[in-house]
Design a protein around this nucleic acid. Structure first.
Length: 326
DNA sequence: GGTAGACCTGGACGC
DNA sequence: GCGTCCAGGTCTACC
């Protein structure tokens, strides 16, 4: 049997290099962006007929030869119909293909600064679970440690594809992992039990992805629920909101304060700067996270060059607050 | 409601 | 090479 190859039609304004390299998670395992070929490699966890996890390596690239920008996803084995449907859904989530051209136009009407570059979509994970764990691994830690934690989680607990790559651990796998294993082998520190508890909550349905993602669920309700999760405070909840495609909340941290000081020229105490940041983004209403994020991203690109040229193991590791201060 | 201190890791720094 | 300090967001105890 030949390996599966899927053709995906994204919205006409989609640009793989721009839209993958739009949020830091594209630098975290198991994602691997290749700047040379402008392709995204990663292992997706699909599920075979018996419901057993079936890690599968996938390479996503964009065809530029036709007028309509088609995406091609190549897999390391033949997929069943059900697996193809799941892979399609996971890729759609990762690349925010659900963000239509009309929604993009609406964002650009509110914040015209990004119309020229076309920025509107933010990269995320194939599953909400991975996004939640990635967010927890980014809290109270410098970026290089977040890179290490995600790499170790995949190497130690992620299933292996036939091509040899590791997937992100499944909720079931993390739910039955012992805290000392997470701490010593994945270097997650005190986050160990919180990660296990989150996996259990996801596995037993307490974290209800359908409810959280539903347009019928008000932003306030989703945000309040996220705050009840272990390891999730105001910053993490705000970040998970944007990973759900809800951009009405900010996710403010020390990096936001640095941005307020060095880019926006704010002065005063950290608390005063945070207050000014909230006022600054208020006019962008339901789009405020994107306005905030693309400002920040612009600054990173001014320091490190276009994001699609960043390599995970070199440029990607240099994002520390200390290095960005000047 | 506000605040102080602990949590853990890894990078920076001084010796 | 070793020891110490510090950054980072959440949680708990306390006022």
């Amino acid at each position: 049997m030949t390996n599966t190859r899927l053709t995906i039609r994204p919205p006409a304004d989609f640009d793989l290099a721009r839209d993958v390299c739009s949020y830091g998670y594209f630098l975290l395992a198991p994602n691997h962006w290749d700047p040379e070929t402008r392709s995204l490699f990663r292992v997706l966890t699909l599920y075979g007929d018996q419901g057993k996890p079936a890690p599968t390596t996938c390479r996503i690239s964009q065809t530029k030869s036709t007028k309509i920008p088609a995406l091609t996803a190549r897999f390391d084995r033949a997929l069943t119909r059900a697996e193809q449907a799941l892979a399609h859904a996971q890729i759609t989530r990762m690349l925010s293909l659900g963000t239509t051209e009309a929604e993009t136009r609406d964002f650009h009407k509110t914040d015209r600064r990004w119309k020229k570059s076309g920025r509107a979509r933010l990269f995320r994970s194939p599953t909400l679970f991975e996004d939640i764990i990635k967010t927890v691994t980014s809290c109270n830690v410098a970026w290089p440690s977040t890179i290490t934690m995600n790499a170790r989680l995949c190497e130690v607990l992620g299933g292996r594809s036939s091509a040899g790559g590791h997937a992100f651990p499944t909720p079931a796998k993390l739910a039955r992992t012992r805290a000392p294993t997470l701490r010593s082998r994945c270097r997650v520190g005190y986050r160990d039990q919180r990660i296990i508890d989150l996996a259990k909550l996801y596995k037993n349905g307490t974290i209800d992805e359908a409810w959280l993602a539903s347009p019928d669920t008000p932003d306030d309700d989703a945000f309040k629920f996220l705050l009840t999760l272990p390891g999730v405070g105001p910053y993490a909840a705000g970040n998970i909101m944007q990973l759900l495609g809800r951009y009405s909340r900010l996710a403010l941290d020390t990096e936001s304060v640095r941005h307020g000081k060095s880019v926006l020229g704010y002065t005063g105490t950290d608390r005063a700067i945070l207050k000014q940041l909230v006022a600054h983004y208020e006019p962008f209403g339901d789009h405020k996270f994107r306005s905030y994020w693309f400002e920040l991203w612009d600054f990173y690109e001014s320091k490190k060059g276009p994001a699609h040229t960043w390599d995970r193991d070199t440029t990607g590791k240099t994002f520390t607050a200390a290095l960005l201060k000047d």
